[in-house]
Design a protein around this nucleic acid. Structure first.
Length: 276
DNA sequence: GGGAACGTTTAG
DNA sequence: CTAAACGTTCCC
């Protein structure tokens, strides 16, 4: 399932390798912007996919118990360590889930379903939801309640993942207005083509990982007037037209720079593309 | 349809 | 404020 997207990435890399081969020796394994560089995540996509998500008490996460306090641990000591939940909660990719959950709870959008009425209380290790198939699109195990992680929910709920932070557009009546004020057109909120928010480079594809401009393509030569990034550095994801085949308009307006989420969405898209 | 030019957004 | 870069429009 989830390896499908990786296959796509690999194929994409192969596909683009021919023009890139010109000076592929100069291709670094770093994204362009510092902000993208900062997105280094201690865990790979496959880690999240393969690691079962344990049920978690969300209140405990918002107000972590001493046992849950993050421990300062070098990221490279254990390459494939099991992520502790405080780590996930204050993710290096900028997904401040605790903040999001708190705001959701305030807004009454996040109904906490108390566990423990039989059925093992949700603490047994055998309680593995069919989560892996969703590739992180469902946060039920994260938040202790069914929390469909459809990105469409976040504009509607007044959230925006931007610049590595969760922004709240003051829940309630102001929510939609706040979104509109932030540049969301009502059409874009509905997933239409009205949104004109900039998409972000994925930071993961081969062009994104390229660090130097070729200085020879039209974009490089015409940078002052063209306002375009080097053709060989143009993100594969951004090359796809919004609304085009395989494109999920929900991405528009979201800063999914947390690459794992981007990968998850891409996975979701590739899955849906396969389905129909 | 592809590329150039320009408007606009975003991050520092 | 400025630079970088995405989105849109126009031209070929």
């Amino acid at each position: 399932m989830c390896s499908h997207y990786l296959d796509v990435c690999l194929k994409s890399a192969d596909k683009t390798s021919s023009p890139l081969r010109i000076n592929s020796a100069k291709i670094p394994n770093e994204p362009l912007r510092p902000s993208l560089k900062r997105s280094h995540h201690p865990y790979s996509l496959s880690h999240y996919i393969s690691t079962p998500s344990p049920p978690v008490d969300v209140k405990g996460l918002i107000q972590p118990s001493p046992a849950q306090q993050p421990t300062t641990q070098p990221a490279h000591t254990k390459p494939r360590r099991t992520p502790s939940w405080p780590d996930m909660w204050e993710s290096p990719s900028g997904l401040h889930l605790a903040h999001a959950a708190e705001l959701l709870m305030r807004a009454g959008l996040l109904a906490l379903t108390p566990r423990g009425d039989g059925e093992g209380g949700g603490s047994g290790p055998e309680e593995e939801e069919e989560d892996s198939s969703g590739c992180g699109t469902d946060f039920q195990p994260f938040l202790g309640a069914w929390f469909p992680f459809s990105p469409a929910l976040f504009p509607l709920a007044g959230f925006q993942m931007g610049g590595g932070h969760w922004r709240s557009a003051t829940m309630g009546a102001e929510g939609m207005e706040g979104l509109v004020a932030e540049g969301y057109s009502p059409g874009s909120l509905g997933g239409g083509s009205g949104g004109r928010r900039k998409r972000k480079r994925c930071g993961e594809c081969v062009p994104c990982r390229r660090q130097t401009n070729c200085e020879q393509c039209s974009s490089c030569r015409n940078r002052k007037r063209g306002h375009q990034i080097c053709k060989y550095r143009k993100c594969e994801e951004l090359k796809r037209k919004p609304g085009g085949p395989g494109f999920d308009s929900r991405v528009s307006g979201f800063d999914l720079r947390g690459s794992d989420f981007t990968l998850g969405l891409a996975q979701e898209r590739s899955n849906s593309a396969l389905d129909g």
